[in-house]
């Protein structure tokens, strides 16, 4: 847990470059960012601006080349792969653009996946799954397979899977990018609910200005740095 006024997420001097065709292409050359606990941040920017790279580093699935990256008390930039996997299992949920549900599992089984990594009994896992499916409005669809669900329903299963472990941080990668407006608004309402009522810290990468309005603030990334920051209405 962070102490006093210390930000929940702190990135300092982050450097990241990718080798493309033998040439190093810099993405970040000293990025700084702080996010307090309970914030809901939309990250926008053109393609190639580093949004996904930022999200990957926050998720611990990519490492910065330089700088420090702390979330809570965990210094992700110093952790090995196994430690980062364990950190993800207990501290973070992720919502993907294309839901990324496993097709051979039912909605309930997909939601249960992260709980297999926790020391819970079968009954405890079932109760948690029922609770979050109810929270996202999918009670009664536990045994339905993803292929038989609409995009909006699949994304709600994805959100349920992301929050079933009760993580403090929720990372969303274009969560409404594959949805119609109505379904997108439902999903965004749900994210706002999770932020306001359950105090989840949410970082959402999006291209959709409408989606960004649901966040407490919006960060614009361009050429590897934040060029604008504003509070959402």
């Amino acid at each position: 847990m962070t102490q006093g006024n210390e930000p929940y997420i702190a990135l300092s001097g982050i450097k990241k470059a990718y080798r493309i065709g033998g040439e190093m292409i810099p993405i970040f050359s000293g990025l700084d960012l702080t996010i307090p606990r309970g914030d809901f941040v939309a990250v926008m920017g053109p393609s190639g601006s580093g949004k996904s790279t930022l999200l990957n580093m926050l998720a611990g699935i990519d490492r910065p080349d330089g700088g420090t990256l702390r979330i809570g008390t965990s210094h992700l930039d110093q952790m090995g792969e196994a430690a980062r996997a364990a950190w993800r299992a207990h501290n973070m949920g992720i919502v993907f653009q294309f839901y990324n549900l496993l097709p051979m599992l039912t909605a309930a089984e997909n939601v249960e996946l992260p709980l297999l990594l926790k020391p819970l009994t079968r009954k405890e896992r079932r109760l948690r799954v029922e609770r979050v499916l109810d929270l996202v409005g999918l009670s009664g669809r536990e045994k339905q397979y993803p292929a038989l669900m609409s995009g909006g329903q699949q994304q709600r299963v994805g959100i349920a899977r992301a929050i079933v472990s009760d993580p403090g941080l929720l990372l969303c990668d274009e969560p409404t990018g594959d949805l119609d407006r109505k379904s997108a608004d439902e999903v965004l309402e749900m994210l706002r609910f999770l932020n306001r009522q359950l105090e989840k810290t949410i970082i959402m990468v999006t291209h959709d200005p409408q989606a960004a309005l649901y966040a407490r603030r919006t960060l614009h990334l361009d050429k590897g740095d934040f060029i604008e920051e504003k509070r959402a209405a």
Partner: peptide, 16 residues
């Protein structure tokens, strides 16, 4: 492979 990436993102370790 993609789904293995998803599982790892959810916190499944290499040993898992």
């Amino acid at each position: 492979t993609f789904e293995i990436g998803v599982l790892k993102t959810l916190g499944f370790s290499r040993l898992d």
